Amino acid sequence: GLEHMADEEKLPPGWEKRMERSSGRVYYFNHITNASQWERPSG
């Protein structure tokens, strides 16, 4: 619901949600550090 939507907005600075086109899996990418990970970043 709306709570989940708001929660997605609160990623740490630099992080954004991305989708891997080949598999459709969602991952997280940090455009500041060029880091990427499957787990939702905390902090």
Rank of each mutant, 00 (worst) to 15 (best):
N30W: 01
V26N: 05
S36T: 14
E16T: 08
E20F: 06
R21P: 15
F29S: 01
R18W: 03
N34A: 08
S22W: 06
Q37Y: 03
Q37G: 02
H31T: 15
G43A: 12
S22D: 11
G14W: 05
H4R: 11
A35V: 15
P13N: 07
D7G: 10
W38T: 07
Y28F: 05
M5W: 12
E39Y: 06
T33W: 04
I32F: 10
A6N: 10
S22P: 07
I32M: 09
E16S: 08
F29D: 02
R18T: 03
F29Y: 15
R25F: 04
Q37A: 04
Q37T: 04
H4Y: 10
G43F: 15
F29N: 01
L2S: 14
A6D: 14
H4E: 14
T33I: 05
E39L: 05
P41M: 01
S23L: 04
L2H: 12
P12W: 03
H31Q: 09
G1L: 12
A6L: 12
D7M: 09
P13M: 08
R21L: 15
G43H: 11
E16W: 03
W15N: 00
L11M: 05
I32D: 09
E16A: 05
M19G: 02
H31S: 14
A35S: 11
P12V: 01
E3K: 09
H4T: 14
H31Y: 15
E8T: 10
E3F: 01
S22A: 12
G1V: 12
E9W: 05
D7K: 09
M5N: 12
G14Y: 07
H4G: 12
G14C: 07
M19Q: 09
Q37V: 04
E3S: 11
E8Y: 03
A35D: 09
P41L: 01
T33H: 04
V26H: 09
G24M: 05
R21N: 13
Y27G: 02
S36K: 14
S23E: 04
D7S: 10
R25I: 06
D7R: 07
T33A: 03
W38L: 08
V26R: 03
H31L: 14
L11S: 01
E8H: 09
L11E: 15
E8V: 10
L11K: 09
Y28H: 00
G24L: 04
I32H: 09
G1P: 12
D7Y: 06
F29Q: 02
H4S: 13
H31W: 14
K10C: 14
P13T: 07
G24R: 05
P12G: 04
L11Q: 02
E8D: 13
R18L: 08
H31K: 12
T33V: 03
M19E: 08
K10P: 15
L2T: 13
N30Q: 02
I32E: 09
G43S: 13
D7W: 06
K10L: 11
N30F: 03
E9D: 13
P41Q: 00
A6Q: 13
P13V: 07
D7L: 09
F29M: 02
P12E: 03
Y27M: 03
G24T: 03
E8N: 12
E8R: 09
G1Q: 13
P12A: 04
Y28P: 01
I32N: 08
E16V: 10
M5E: 14
E3Q: 12
R21V: 15
E9C: 14
E9P: 09
S23R: 03
N30P: 00
K17V: 11
W15Y: 01
G24S: 04
R21I: 15
A6M: 11
N34T: 06
L11T: 02
G14R: 01
I32S: 06
F29K: 03
M19W: 13
K17E: 09
A35N: 10
L2C: 15
P12R: 01
A6P: 13
E3R: 09
E9V: 07
G1C: 15
P12S: 02
K17G: 03
G24D: 05
E20A: 10
Y28E: 01
W38V: 07
S42R: 07
N34G: 15
G1E: 11
G24F: 02
G1R: 11
E9A: 08
R18V: 08
E8F: 03
R21S: 14
G24H: 05
N30S: 04
Y28T: 00
K10N: 13
L2F: 14
G24N: 07
E39W: 06
M19T: 14
R21H: 14
M19P: 02
E20R: 04
W15E: 00
